[in-house]
Simulated assay, not measured.
Amino acid sequence: MTEQRPRRTQAQRRASTRARILACTAECLLESGYAATTVSAVQERAGLARGTVQHHFPTRAELLVAATTQVVDQRLEQFRREAELLPPGRDRLQSVVDLAWRDLNSPAFFTALDLWVAARTDAELRDRLVHEEQRVFTEMRRLYLEVLGEPYAADPRAELLVEFTIDLLTGLSMTAMLTGTLGEREAVVRRWKRALAVLVGQLPSDELLDGSPLPLTASAG
């Protein structure tokens, strides 16, 4: 005799529907961008009535920000997984640059960028997005410093260097998205790694423009 599954409660059905809506919204944002992620597009993808979507998320801004939270959480989890796979002997300062560069060239980052641009002229979206972006910025900085570990963590310059790295690579990703080739972008990343090595005393300043590869196991001075 086939065992019947217990019927889901109303709360469980509601949570399942909400999760489905958010998953479909996140997919739409990643695949098609902000402009194409309308309530109609989400309800069609989810196979739900428009009223069902709007029951959970009365406005488009609420829907998009809730989905962005999900994308952000996936982005943070991906960073954590990649950080755990770093070889133990590899220089952590260079590793943070590599991790940050991959993150800032990911679909999740470009989704965030799309929303930032839209929020410039959408007050409701901007108000709701500010808190979420503050959360991701705070958490990413914490993760970068955590990955650095010792001897960098004890260096009073570490937090500022992480800040510079994020700002530089964010700007590079945004501008190179339209104008730069992959080779040009990678060259800037290599130069920044060398600049960081000079700043922490791994290399003398006269080697700043040297094009040779940095040692993978360099330690802070």
Rank of each mutant, 00 (worst) to 15 (best):
R14I: 07
L161D: 06
T17W: 09
R45F: 10
P87Y: 11
Y144L: 03
A36H: 07
E146F: 09
H131N: 09
A100H: 02
P156N: 11
V188R: 00
S205T: 05
L93A: 02
M177H: 15
F109P: 00
T170L: 04
A123G: 06
R5F: 14
D98A: 10
A49C: 04
A35K: 03
P6K: 00
T9S: 15
L209I: 00
H56T: 07
R135E: 13
A123S: 10
L148C: 07
A23S: 10
A46P: 10
R75K: 01
E3Y: 07
S212A: 06
E186T: 13
L99M: 08
T38N: 13
T217E: 15
Q78T: 11
Q74S: 08
R120T: 07
E159D: 11
E207C: 05
I166N: 02
D73H: 06
F57S: 05
Q70L: 13
A11G: 05
M140S: 03
V188G: 02
A15G: 04
I166G: 01
L76V: 08
I166S: 07
D210P: 11
G171Q: 06
I21F: 12
V72G: 01
E124W: 04
L160I: 12
L199D: 06
E133A: 03
A67K: 03
F57G: 00
W116Y: 11
L76W: 02
L172C: 03
V189M: 00
L115S: 00
G47M: 05
C24A: 03
G149R: 07
R128N: 09
L48N: 05
L64T: 00
T69S: 15
E150D: 14
Q78K: 05
V53Q: 04
R80D: 15
L64G: 01
R92K: 10
W116D: 08
M177Q: 14
V39L: 14
P151D: 08
H55M: 04
T111P: 08
E207A: 08
L145C: 11
S106T: 02
A197F: 08
V162D: 14
E27Q: 12
R185V: 10
M1G: 14
S32A: 14
L143P: 04
A197H: 01
A220C: 11
R157F: 13
E186G: 09
R90K: 10
A26I: 06
S173N: 09
A19H: 01
D114M: 08
W192E: 13
S40T: 05
L172P: 07
L208W: 12
R126Y: 09
G33K: 02
F137C: 05
T68Q: 15
V198C: 10
P107V: 04
L113C: 01
T111Q: 13
R5E: 15
P215V: 03
V65Q: 05
E44C: 12
E124G: 00
G171P: 11
